[in-house]
């Protein structure tokens, strides 16, 4: 069961690196967060410790319900619902993501836990989405994928305190709420969320 969920998480990360439509990105992020929540439940069932269940419930509530709700409310006003010309174009996104993932597996050869490597894969794929796109909403999705990678990383570490888990998840919630509000206002002023126009503010 753990292996199937790891495969689903990796597949959604690679697919999201190549998508251009925004509603597909939101759906992919939801499926990924659902897989991470189910992974927390499976780990809690296997090891018998109760703090995994709490992380799982919190992850499901914030990342499957609340954050997509914020994102949907702020992208409802958008006129263009796909990324027109990203910085890295077309199929090169997927190929570069694949090369990065292979390099990660080479570099982290000594670790035998599966989730550390999957967490770093999500971090790098999220960073790729963050850097290689021009629209603010896809950059926000890249940031959220990086946060998913962080949650996977901390799942496989030694048992951290419950307080730190709750702090991380609340931080993600607040930052994504702030980003959604800012995207809404950027759209109102410029009538697009292309971040090239933000350089008009320089003078």
């Amino acid at each position: 069961m753990l292996e199937i969920l790891t495969a689903v998480i990796l597949i959604t990360a690679i697919i999201m690196a190549g998508f251009r439509r925004i509603n597909l990105l939101t759906k992919g992020f939801r499926i990924q967060s659902l897989a991470i929540g189910l992974l927390c439940f499976a780990l809690g069932y296997l090891s018998g410790e109760s703090h995994y269940y709490v992380i799982g419930v919190l992850t499901l509530i914030t990342k499957t319900v609340l954050i997509p709700h914020f994102m949907n409310r702020s992208i409802k006003e958008l006129s263009a619902n796909r990324e027109m010309d990203p910085i890295i174009n077309g199929w090169w996104s997927s190929v570069i993501a694949g090369i990065f993932i292979a390099v990660i597996y080479v570099v982290m050869e000594g670790f035998n836990s599966d989730f550390i490597i999957a967490g770093v894969v999500l971090l790098v794929t999220g960073a790729l989405m963050l850097v290689a796109r021009k629209k603010a909403i896809t950059q926000m999705t890249g940031f959220l994928v990086m946060e998913n990678g962080l949650v996977l990383l901390e799942l496989s570490m030694i048992k951290m305190g419950l307080l730190i888990d709750i702090l991380i998840i609340l931080e993600v919630l607040l930052i994504s709420a702030i980003m959604a509000i800012m995207i809404f206002y950027i759209n109102k002023v410029f009538h697009s969320v292309n971040t090239d126009y933000l350089s008009n503010l320089k003078d």
């Binding site: 990796l10 190549g18 190929v95 694949g98 597996y105």
Partner: peptide, 22 residues
């Protein structure tokens, strides 16, 4: 179609990376 097939190429590359180095 190349975008779709590039995604599939990436899947195959990841699968080899997982299997080869463990």
């Amino acid at each position: 179609a190349p975008e779709l097939l590039a995604t599939s190429f990436c899947f195959a590359l990841t699968a080899i990376a997982i299997v080869y180095l463990h």
